[in-house]
Amino acid sequence: MAALAWLLIPLLAAVGAAIWGSWAGRHRTTGDVSELAGYARFREAMEKEHSS
């Protein structure tokens, strides 16, 4: 029974690592479009102020 417990520890660690890896590697694309648009507006405003 003790040997089974020692075999379950690495198995549970591998399952936990797989779950964490899938969570860490997920695609996070929400908000990028609005942030890029805001950055473009910021650059345009800085160019207008600099050229005047």
Rank of each mutant, 00 (worst) to 15 (best):
G25L: 00
S52H: 09
W20S: 09
A2R: 14
A14M: 03
A24G: 02
P10D: 00
A13I: 07
L11A: 14
G38I: 02
D32H: 15
E35F: 11
G25Q: 07
E44H: 08
A40P: 00
V15W: 05
A17S: 08
I19V: 15
Y39G: 06
I19A: 15
G16N: 06
G31T: 03
S52K: 13
A24R: 13
R28D: 13
L11T: 11
A13H: 02
M1P: 02
R26G: 14
R41M: 12
D32Q: 11
V33P: 03
T30L: 06
A5Y: 06
D32F: 12
F42S: 15
E35S: 14
F42Q: 14
E47A: 14
E44R: 01
D32K: 15
V33L: 13
E49A: 15
A17W: 07
R43W: 07
R41G: 10
L7C: 09
M1I: 08
E47T: 00
A14I: 07
L12D: 02
R28G: 09
G31F: 00
L7P: 00
R26Y: 05
L12R: 06
K48F: 07
L12Y: 05
E47N: 02
W6L: 12
I19P: 02
L12C: 05
L36C: 03
T30M: 05
V33C: 03
W20Y: 12
A13V: 11
G31C: 04
W6R: 10
H27G: 07
H50T: 03
D32T: 05
V15T: 09
I9M: 07
L4K: 12
G16T: 06
R41S: 14
P10H: 08
A37N: 12
L36W: 10
T29C: 06
G16P: 00
R43F: 11
E47Y: 01
A13R: 01
G16D: 04
K48G: 02
K48M: 09
H50D: 09
A24D: 04
S22K: 10
Y39N: 14
A14W: 02
R41P: 01
G38L: 11
W23P: 00
L8H: 04
G25N: 14
L8K: 01
I9F: 10
A14R: 00
E47I: 01
E47P: 01
G21D: 04
L12H: 06
A2V: 11
T30Y: 07
K48W: 08
L4F: 13
A17K: 00
L11M: 09
Y39E: 15
R28C: 01
S52Y: 06
F42C: 03
E35D: 12
R41A: 15
M46S: 08
S52M: 06
F42T: 01
L36N: 14
I9V: 15
T30W: 02
L8P: 01
L7W: 08
S22W: 12
H27F: 11
S52R: 14
A17Y: 10
P10F: 03
S51A: 14
A40Y: 10
L7V: 03
Y39H: 13
A45R: 09
W23H: 09
W6F: 12
V33W: 09
A40S: 13
I19F: 02
L11F: 13
L36K: 04
L8D: 08
G21H: 08
S51C: 05
G25F: 04
F42W: 15
A3T: 00
